[in-house]
Amino acid sequence: MNIFRLSGDLSHLLAILLLLVKIWKTRSCAGISGKSQILFAIVYTTRYLDLFTSFVSVYNSFMKVVFLTASYGTLYLMFFKFKPTYDHNHDSFRILYLIIPSLVLSFIIVHVYTVMEILWTYSIYLEAVAIMPQLFMVSRTGEAETITSHYLFALGSYRALYILNWIYRYYTEDFLDMIVIIAGIVQTILYCDFFYLYITKVLKGKRLSLP
């Protein structure tokens, strides 16, 4: 554990809780992509199956349970409790275009051919692109609520902080996992456009709207 990893985790946690609180307080999931949330639930489920097979630390296990619970809680709110507020017309990204290639890639580029390792690798690849339906939705509607922008910023920052964590771990522990590093860089690059808009608009008190 180092400061970059911890900051990344806290940023990730903040993002997930921010989204839950936003939906709960406004009693609405307008502007949120249910498809991205489905992908994140798949990501957490396939990655955290190791809760049953290996134990690293109380911190890790606790966070995994929180992420899983919050993720399924979000799905419940979106697709059951506040379903009428879900804007499915604008959530039209075809997620099979992300699910299938990630799955194929996880069979081609993987460290070890075991079920758990392939599922873990799949979760890494899928996570890298899971935000695309949400970004697509923002581009289709041309705007995002400020709280949604904060959510996206925290979620994007998490992987960017993890990149610093990997650089740090490379120098201090000789740790180098190219799969997670490349995927993490791709994931962060996808947010760059949004980061730019967030810094130039939202931080100056303006609503995020596209020209």
């Binding site: 990730h12 190791d50 097979t53 290996s54 992420f67 070890v112 758990m116 390792e117 993890y162």
Partner: peptide, 10 residues
């Protein structure tokens, strides 16, 4: 090689 236990990240 990486084993499950070595994925000490979230």
């Amino acid at each position: 090689p990486v084993t499950d236990a070595e994925h000490d990240e979230l």
